[in-house]
Amino acid sequence: MSASSSTDLNLTLKIWRQPSAAAAGQFKTYELRGVSPDVSFLEMLDQLNEQLIAKGEEPVAFDHDCREGICGTCGVMINGQAHGPDNETTTCQLHMRRFQNGDLIVIEPWRANAFPVVRDLVVNRSAFDRIIQAGGYVSVNTGGAPDGNAIPVPRHQQEAAMDAAACIGCGACVASCKNASAMLFVSAKVSQMANLPQGLAERSQRVLGMVAQMDKEGFGGCSVTEECEAACPAGIKLTNIALMNREYMRAALTATE
């Protein structure tokens, strides 16, 4: 389908360009013609980059990897929406049939103090790793675990844990929040573990440790605007934040460790 067809889109792209973390950034505008509606958003950017390379210009840097919506690497603001207009859809799974011929598309990186820009649309999300290091695990060494069926987990609890565990760590929740809060991300892990018997031994230090690290990284607080839930490509629910608040309160008032 290299020959352009009548359904192909001609687009104006306004893209954030920033050579490095230290350099100042600015929007640059590009015209891109002949985009098939069947390609993904990232394939549209690939197409732009091939054109830039042909002209000897530097391509637009953007993070991506699996391109099937699970690795959590990709993610940009598309016309002000994290991952673009589709519900529960990562940038890599968004397809250009969602756009109209002649559209102007504004593309920006995640914006948050805790996610400094690396280059163009690429940001540094290592703050999430440090939050997990502060307690997002069960302290069990390899070897010596009891038989899997020795720890029965009622199905509804396992389902609730799995709903929360589905978080892909992309950072859309932070990017879409006016406070740049990471509460949805943190609460998803707290909630997964709080729903499982394996997680209960450390439930207090986990929530206290993760929340303290979250604050230290410079993420903002939650003012319940629910943007995070709307932007989340993995369907993580706001109720996890309520659960985390309860866990935090319980730990703060009763923890003896």
Binding site: T142, G148, Q198
Partner: peptide, 12 residues
């Protein structure tokens, strides 16, 4: 066994 102990939410 190891993964269950870690809190991997296998289907039940």
């Amino acid at each position: 066994d190891q993964c269950v102990a870690q809190g991997v939410p296998f289907a039940r």
